[in-house]
């Protein structure tokens, strides 16, 4: 996995996970602002940026395990985690699977909740699904590539189009229908939900749902921001809320780390 570390080497560790179709670059400006206080670990998720493809068609749980393994390899016993979009659902999985390892969570436009689609939308989706089967069948019979060449261009989601056929598309199909409700319910750690009010990819009803599901969560809705509230100077606004949230008991944690280091040194 391609990773970079930014910021204070003696700061409290924070792992940041990007969204689908992105790479660690998308979170870098935000990471640089947080780096003045935290030891930031930016990760290219397997299959994105400069990280190689995962060895199988992973679901978010498997992604979460890969992140956990990375943290272990870095000697991080406990850390904060920030996830955007797809990275958000991975963070949720990680927090529910490895409760002890996670200290606090920041979720920005996190995926993982079913869309509330209107009846007409539902009708449209089932029509597209039916059509896709039909087209695939035609392709098979006539040995042509209507599906790849025309159908996806017309009906595929942006993410689907961007995913290269094969492994990443399989992973997208697998993860997009995953549901993190049960995992989110298990999370007891302090959680900050940052959400763009104009987010169309993960609309704010999802933020409200997560706010209900995660007991110890705080929700901040950012007016006039979309699914990428940390772009441009939005990085300053997001960093402001994140640092306020993280600094609440950072000093205490800092002290613990130092004490631990001392302890380890003497042992």
């Amino acid at each position: 996995m391609n990773t970079i570390k930014i910021g204070k080497s003696d700061g409290y560790p924070l792992i940041m996970l990007h969204g689908w179709g992105q790479s660690l670059q998308s979170l870098k400006p935000l990471a640089e602002l947080l780096g003045n206080y935290c030891q930031v670990h930016l990760i290219d998720l397997p299959g994105f940026g400069q990280s190689p493809l995962p060895e199988a068609d992973w679901n978010t749980l498997q992604y979460a395990e890969a992140i956990f393994d990375y943290a272990q390899s870095q000697g991080l016993k406990q850390f904060d985690i920030l996830g955007h979009s797809f990275g958000g659902s991975i963070a949720i999985r990680l927090a529910s699977q490895h409760e002890k390892a996670i200290n606090r969570l920041v979720l920005i436009g996190a995926r993982g909740l079913p869309r509330q689609s209107k009846f007409t939308q539902k009708l449209y989706f089932s029509f597209v699904k039916y059509l896709s089967k039909l087209v695939k069948l035609t392709d098979k019979i006539l040995n042509c590539q209507i599906y790849e060449k025309y159908f996806i261009a017309k009906f595929g989601s942006r993410d689907y189009k961007n995913a290269s056929p094969g492994r990443m598309r399989n992973i997208l199909v697998k993860t997009v229908t995953e549901n993190t409700i049960a995992s989110a319910q298990k999370i007891l750690k302090p959680t900050l939900l940052l959400w763009g009010e104009d987010d169309t990819e993960t609309p704010i009803y999802m933020a409200q749902k997560y706010h209900e599901l995660i007991k110890n969560s705080k929700l901040i809705i950012l007016p006039a921001k979309d699914h990428f509230p940390f772009n441009d100077v939005g990085s300053h606004l997001c960093a402001h809320y994140i640092l306020n949230f993280l600094s609440a008991d950072n000093q205490k944690k800092q002290f613990q780390i130092q004490a631990e280091a001392k302890h380890n040194a003497t042992v």
């Binding site: 007016p223 441009d232 100077v233 939005g234 606004l237 402001h240 809320y241």
Partner: peptide, 10 residues
């Protein structure tokens, strides 16, 4: 416009 994007909206 930049200022508006960065102001603490809470």
């Amino acid at each position: 416009l930049q200022l508006i994007k960065a102001i603490d909206t809470e």
